[in-house]
Design a binder for these strands. Sequence first.
RNA 1: CCUGUCGUAGCUCAGUUGGCUAGAGCGUUGGAUUGUGGCUCCAAAGGUCAAGGGUUCGAGCCCCUUCGACAGGACCA
Length: 491
Amino acid sequence: MSTVRPEARLPRGFRDAFAADFLARRKAIDTICKVYAVFGFEPLETSSIEYLDALGKYLPDTDAPGGGVFALRDDDGEWIALRYDLTAPLARVVAAHPDLPSPFRRYQFGSVFRREKKPGPGRFREFYQCDFDTVGTASPAADAEVCAVLCRALRELGIPASDFIVRVNNRKLLNGVLDAARIDEPSRRLLVLRSIDKLDKFGIEGVVQLLGAGRTDPSGERTDGAKLEPAQIDLILGLLQCSQPDRAGTCDAAERLVRDSESGREGVAELREIHALLDAMDLPSSLVTFDTNVVRGLEYYTGPVFEAELTFLVEEEGEKRKFGSVAGGGRYDYLVERFTGNKVPATGASIGVDRLLAALAKQRGERAESLPGPVIVTAMDRERLADYQRMTNELREAGIPAELYLGGGGFRQQLKYADRRLAPVVVIAGSNEFERGEVTLKDMLAGKQLSEQITDKLVWRKEQPAQRVVPRSRLVAEVQEIVQRATRGSS
RNA sequence: CCUGUCGUAGCUCAGUUGGCUAGAGCGUUGGAUUGUGGCUCCAAAGGUCAAGGGUUCGAGCCCCUUCGACAGGACCA
């Protein structure tokens, strides 16, 4: 009889988070959410699953939804899907609760799911986002605040101002230039936006090719171009190159490009207002810049768009690389209207926590150090389990993380276990200690340091310089003292 | 989804034009040390050479298919 065993595997693009990563993420989320709260956003948690049409995904004529989302058919035949961001669910909540205060300012963190065909480093199918939005105002002040929140959050995470930049653009400006260039067909406008989005990937020549005849990648892959006239391409290039170090300068340059396009003029006007408000919040152009190349997604955004990028370089297999965008957002004045028919302007952004943490870990030399583990109470004499359990409990009552050794094996193995768990202290009590009413405490950290000078293992064991014998009644106090010394030393 | 490279022990990798029983380091386990982690020494366990098919007297190596990883491209609300 053969048993079919499942393979202990994980679908690609998903991962497990062990203690160090989990704690680092929770800490980052906590820091970010505190910033959101300071700016007056309140928490909201929505369900992980939504109806597919509420997410904005419509079924093609096939019987399965298109790529990108994890969807399944419910018992009643309706398509439901895992959320792929936190914004669409917010729109649903706002549409379903007309009694909410307006503007409604909420933040939310949680994992979102995307059915990526090709996940890679920094690109997963489940990842954490910290999102914040203001729903119900068209005021550019809300957009300026988005930038301020992003800056503050990144600063609170310990990133110096010189290591990141927030870029702002306006979709109305992009549309204005498309108008000015007389590119009318929606499909071609989309192609142009896509090409602009690839600027940092292929450089200016690559974008020119994509706007014109097309581009053949070194890998041999051919991409069709937008087939624009040279004059049109020049206009787009003008847009790509009009960003200035200072925001006002960029506005001036952009204004000349959009000519008489109404949308373009509106876009520039909004940027000017945002600029003034950023000044009022002491956010200089070096921190929040206007960058006419930012596209951020192809539909969905209707006005200002934001992107936060880490600017330091990361060493990767000998090559220095930019890590790229760690947060993004923008104004979307259409999402709620989809449900209710009422125009409800909204703006916000989202921080990609996993990407951000990965970048920081890379920069600060790989591994986040593991935190100290619990005190381990060893069980040398299995007949005295109750005594060991009592000691463990006393430590816990005092708030010291402690664990009674529950595994099998000899005493040597118990110490190996304690070592692996990064225990700061090991409590030892055998017949010797019990007879005299004492316990032995082993300071694992001190032991580690002293062990560098070991010459003779047998002598080392006999002397045990990192151990002390204390009265049983002093157990908690003495352990406390060693633990405090250890945590002070490590942090 | 397209193109390319790769897949050998838990991990990192050797493995000669296709030729005897597929190796090393690290890790794991046991012992030296009947009550002591981290140093040292000794020993052991651990492999369907990704899977399936083909060529060959003979395949880890060559050919085909599938799966997976990596890199680039397409797509990315």
